[in-house]
Design a protein around this nucleic acid. Structure first.
Length: 573
DNA sequence: GCCGTTTTCGGCCCGACTGTTTTCAGTCG
């Protein structure tokens, strides 16, 4: 059973947490955390790297010691050091660090003085008023802990990007309504277009910060004010989303935008770079000694560090700083680059609009072509099309194209990949279609080996053009299928099949990291809406976000080419 | 624990806010 990178990262994180609570050297703790992050971001399984004789010490922040430990973890899923730590202290202490307001010092104190070693035990102690008796803890802290443990036990969740967006838009509008509060803009993971956001960071420019923060606390949706100072305020909205508003003077706007957009790892790397140049970088600007040298725009901040401006989606410390230094940043794909959409449903299966309505909606959004890809017969619950209904739809589309002016409709299907990897429609019919998207809609829990074999077989089918939502994850609802994505992506590249970035904000599948893997392997990607009604074409922006996070350029995206080029590419398959 | 066109030892990103202090530690982002 291969140990996946996420597990290795989790082990390293747990070691870091337990060392931290133990009071170990903070920089040693940081070394483990950095290593966890590096491994977690890796596109290739550590086991694979080792099998190819790669030296892990070539990775940043990993020396001889960590390389040895990581190899051990990759082999066994754990390592002696972690086992020793677990023998010395309750493993659940690590979990306590995830309770907001608790850091290593407090966790250690609570454990020593109260014997608290789980979130449940801490919640109980707070409820019984025992926490306030501990030195350094007071009534307020106890109340905070009570609330925080309660929320934690209820599992504080992250918010899907589209859900966060529903909060952002009216909030930004409300804040912008205050006189003297200018340029209210979201930063943080929302601006970086992560698939989910934990909380919302909003930046604004104002002379009177305290007044702006007060304005935030008076917002009608605020359930709870967490903190409120002169430059920064934190509130929790009804529904649980936490919002941070930071207010800066205009001269610091760019530096603050850079700072609060993150990611944390990107910021740390930038500040380190600044330091190496004898400069200091903080949210107010870039400074040589006390003298400000940049800060009013993000461009000026990056330029002061010898870097090109880096698009927010890339700011994860995954090589973008080196690329910006050497002029090798990608020209990321934009919404305007998309010429078409290759995955669209109609009311013939489980969509809500006609072929013509979908075509007109797509044309209104500037697309030149769409492929109608209704479900196939096996998906009875979605009204999947059998061969005769699909044949009729092909004719209907041909007739429609004679009337349409601004857009071309391609005939297609989203054909089911059956349990054994065969397809749900006969090859003769599939070969009549312009676009064949093949997707999994059942048997999600096959073993990794069987699931991978199943997908590889579908990829090898000569009629298939696109692998739809490759991992089948539903954010917050269904884990991705257990798949060897490296093999799937490599096979897609070899077969000339495009991998879909399904732009539905519930899916976002491929993920950003998989997009990056696809690019590395030379596989092409199709950014598709999977629209079920006319408004769903607007979801394409979410898919674009993931593609950009995965460093994709227009040439990497199948539906960024013209209709003529697309037809050529589909034929060559 | 990592790392080196200032270094193989001595550094390692930075500031805001809170609560419990009586001048600051802890936590967070």
């Amino acid at each position: 059973m291969p140990v996946v990178n996420a597990t290795i990262a989790a082990v390293l994180d747990e070691i870091a947490n337990l060392l931290d609570i133990q009071g170990a050297n903070a920089f040693r703790v940081r070394a483990y955390r950095n290593a966890a992050r590096t491994i977690g971001n890796l596109g290739t399984a550590v086991g694979t790297l080792l099998a190819h004789g790669k030296d892990l010490t070539d990775l940043p922040g990993i020396g001889d010691d960590l390389a040895r430990k990581i190899a051990t973890i990759a082999r066994t899923g754990t390592c002696p050091q972690l086992e020793r730590l677990r023998a010395d202290m309750p493993a659940a202490l690590s979990e306590l660090l995830h309770v907001p307001g608790l850091g290593p010092k407090r966790v250690k104190t609570l454990w020593h003085d109260l014997g608290v070693d789980t979130v449940e035990a801490l919640h109980q102690a707070a409820r019984e008023g025992r926490v306030r008796s501990v030195h350094g803890f007071g009534e307020k802290t106890e109340r905070r802990i009570l609330e925080a443990t309660h929320a934690h036990l209820k599992r504080e969740r992250r918010f899907r990007l589209d859900v966060a967006e529903q909060f952002v838009t009216p909030l930004v509008e409300y804040l912008s309504g205050l006189d003297g509060l200018d340029r209210v803009e979201p930063a943080g993971s929302f601006r970086r277009r992560r698939d989910t956001v934990g909380d919302l960071d909003i930046l604004a420019t104002a002379e009177d910060g305290a007044r702006a923060i007060r304005h935030l606390t008076q917002y009608g949706e605020v359930a709870d004010v967490v903190s409120a100072g002169p430059t920064r305020g934190t509130v929790r909205l009804r529904g649980g989303l936490q919002v941070d508003l930071r207010v800066v003077p205009p001269a610091s706007r760019g530096a603050a935008m850079q700072y609060f957009t993150g990611s944390r790892a990107h910021g740390v790397a930038l500040r380190r770079l600044a330091q190496s140049k004898g400069l200091k970088l903080n949210e107010y600007g870039v400074f040589a000694g006390d003298r400000p040298v940049a800060g009013d725009t993000e461009e000026s901040v990056y330029a002061a560090l010898g870097l090109a401006w880096i698009p927010p989606e890339l700011r994860e410390d995954r090589g973008e700083i080196e690329a910006a230094r050497t002029g090798r940043l990608p020209r990321l794909v934009t919404h305007e680059d998309l010429r078409g959409d290759l995955h669209v449903h109609t009311k013939a299966s489980d969509g809500h609009d006609s072929v013509e309505a979908m075509a007109k909606a797509a044309a209104a959004r500037g697309l030149d072509y769409i492929a109608i890809t209704d479900h196939s017969q096996r998906l009875t619950i979605a009204g999947g099309l059998d061969p005769s209904r699909l044949a009729k739809q092909i004719d209907e589309i041909a007739r429609l194209n004679e009337r349409l002016r601004d857009i071309t409709v391609l005939a297609g299907t989203e054909v089911d990949i059956l349990e054994d990897g065969s397809l749900d429609l006969p090859r003769s019919l599939l070969e009549r279609l312009d676009v064949v998207v093949a997707s999994v809609h059942g048997h999600f829990d096959l073993s990794r080996a069987r699931q991978t074999r199943r997908i590889l077989r579908a990829l090898e089918h000569p009629a298939v053009h696109v692998l739809g939502h490759p991992t089948c994850r539903l954010i917050d609802e269904r884990d991705p299928c257990d798949l060897d994505m490296q093999r799937v992506i490599r096979a897609a590249a070899a077969c000339g099949v495009a991998l879909e970035v399904n732009a539905s904000p519930k899916r976002l599948d491929l993920t950003d990291l998989h997009c990056r893997m696809a690019k590395a392997e030379g596989a092409r990607v199709a950014i598709d809406s999977d629209a079920h009604d006319a408004d769903d074409f607007d979801n394409l922006r979410f898919g674009i976000g993931q593609a950009r996070r995965g460093w994709l350029e227009p040439a990497d995206v199948l539906n960024a080419c013209t209709l003529g080029e697309l037809r050529e590419r589909l034929k060559r398959r």
